[in-house]
Design a protein around this nucleic acid. Structure first.
Lengths: 204, 204
DNA sequence: TTTTTTACTAAACACCGTTCAGTAAATAAA
DNA sequence: TTTATTTACTGAACGGTGTTTAGTAAAAAA
């Protein structure tokens, strides 16, 4: 009877081994360049076996995205200490930029990669993504409630903050900021974050 | 002697035919899904011939990006009529969103696709991309010079405006805005543009 | 002990970007 | 006009890709 338990444990272990190796390879080589054959070789099973544990390469990506979101959420932990909502939002921006520049590959997997995003509605890996967005939205709502801004639309304001960060990060990652011929992109990006906060919120 | 001219004209015609068909196919099927073999089949030459006219698939992409930038610049022509720099910047945002939502595939080819961006420094197709960015930068500089904003950093301000647009567009295209559960993304995106202009500029 | 289920493999299918030996036609030289 | 050379082009070949599936060996159930 316990042999059944053992076999299920072993299956779970293999499932996690595949996830671990796939994550490493997606980060090092990128999603497109990582083939199922290469992953199979790394975990020392045949390609076909991978398809017994994950329906296809997309499903494997969703699992890796879950790992990535956990990583991102860890970076956000210092927010706990900040009471002032405007400072909270500002700090979120700083952490967002810091994480994105330190982990461009994680970032790509979560927010850039072309993947069928039905996972958002179906829950699963994108629950963590929603959690991340709501952290921002609640902080923004606090700013509105406590009268730190004239803007009343939480959605529009949250979207603006997120989009600006996302825009800077992706233009930088894909090297499109080169047309600006700016010497230190990272510094300018943080200046933009501060500038945006100053313009949107009156903290006095 | 004129046969040489004719042959050069015919070469140029084939080069343009390849570009035309490649552009159509990149737009319809996307860059990754369009194979050199398929393009060859469409122009009714063999694969090898394509490599006599374009060094590789990347070079062909650069040429198509040139087409895309011309298209984008055409959309921007109505800006000519607008004198007020703040109105100009605002209108640029509106056109940017309009173009991006009407031509997601052109947009992808120019600003999203993973491609070696050495073309920026080497000139060629990205000259038009720089032209586009300078249109924004000059308008922003006018806003600063005429005292419509407290911000003095042209680069930071231009980058913020561009990044916000780019961020919204790409989050929308890649379906990541679904976590916001907003009913009409396009309307909210234009609200954000207006909101941003109002926050950054004092037009009185 | 026999049957059934499970976990796995290897080959096959239909694609991909790029290269290169070979060919046929046009041009230049004799 | 005949021969030699240059030009434009072809298509097979190389080493990859994601996914499916027939077959197999071992473990579990009957």
């Amino acid at each position: 009877m316990s042999s059944k338990q053992r076999r299920e444990r072993e299956k779970e272990e293999l499932r996690e081994l595949i996830l671990k190796e796939a994550t490493q390879m997606f980060l090092r080589e990128g999603y497109e360049k990582t083939s199922m054959r290469k992953i199979a070789k790394r975990v020392e099973y045949s390609v076909g076996t991978l398809y017994l544990y994950y329906k296809n390469k997309d499903e494997l990506l969703y699992a890796v995205q879950g790992v990535a979101f956990n990583h991102f959420l860890n970076y956000m932990k210092p927010l706990m200490d900040i009471q002032h909502p405007v400072e909270r939002v500002k700090k979120m921006g700083e952490i967002y930029l810091f994480f994105s520049l330190q982990n461009p590959d994680y970032y790509d997997l979560m927010f850039v990669i072309d993947a069928p995003m039905k996972a958002v509605e179906e829950g699963e890996s994108w629950k963590k993504g929603e959690q991340l967005f709501h952290t921002l939205k609640y902080a923004v709502q606090d700013c509105i409630d406590q009268g730190y801004t004239k803007i009343k639309d939480v959605d529009a304001l949250s979207m603006m903050l997120w989009s600006t960060m996302h825009g800077m990060v992706t233009l930088s990652h894909k090297e499109r900021l080169r047309v600006m011929q700016v010497e230190n992109e990272q510094i300018v990006m943080n200046q933009v974050n501060a500038m945006m906060i100053d313009s949107l919120f009156q903290t006095n």
